[in-house]
Design a protein around this nucleic acid. Sequence first.
DNA 1: TTAAGTAACCGCCCTCGCGT
DNA 2: ACGCGAGGGCGGTTACTTAA
Length: 261
Amino acid sequence: MSDIKPFYTTQLQAGLGLVDETKLLLSLYEKDLSANQLYEKALDSGLFPMVSARRLRNIVVECFAPRYIKTGGAEYLKRLATHLSSSAINQLFLIYTATANEILQDFIQEIYWDRYSGGRDSISTDDAKDFVGHAVREGKTQKPWSDSTIKRVSSYLIGCCADYGLLSGGRGSKRAIQPVRIQESTVLYLAYKLHFDGLGDNAVINHKSWALFGLDGSDVREELKRLAKNGWLIVQSAGDVTRIGWQFKSMEEVIDVITQS
DNA sequence: TTAAGTAACCGCCCTCGCGT
DNA sequence: ACGCGAGGGCGGTTACTTAA
């Protein structure tokens, strides 16, 4: 669950957002299925006529499994995927993808929102290349990446942001920043997910996943107070210390609430 | 010690959008 | 209408682990 990922990897190159593929795989997923079992099931399902078996294996084993099976997210997202709007489910996909790919998390946190708050309205492939090149020089990869890998990973960061709606699509070297407003369902889901992962209240509020949506600790506290109006949790702040009263006893209850609202 | 298995990396090559 | 180049799918290769 809380695997430490010391190094940046090139795993994004196996697939970017894969939004449609992920939805299909979620529909096939059942609790406790392994990556290989899901792969076999997907192969037999005939839901992926457009890709080769080798490619399907890539998608399942290198993308879906690290994002949604290892983290335990698949069984919850399976229910949500059919109920939430595409922008709402994209936000959850983004959280899991950024958790599995540290380099994406850091890129969005350090470059995307920084440029946005600095008044820029676009991000270029060169911005991404600078970020990746810098990371390699700082030793954040297990071994130095070749120039071509640096170049490709840079484009994957941009492409992945586009898939999840953070940047405009297309192929221009400059992509327009499309800042996303975090959805209520995302706030509710993420807060409880972190809580059930065993984090204390302050650790929940300051978790880096919120930074994907440009939120810092005090922003998160405000978001949670809005949820409190629905009776979904209770927030008590005194100075810097925040205490949260959690109203639901399991993720299942949280999912029930989200699917009913 | 080595065969088998797995994760990470690399780069070919097809596709698609853009400019002319 | 078409050539060009960037983006990204795809599959092979390398390097590292694990088990016998």
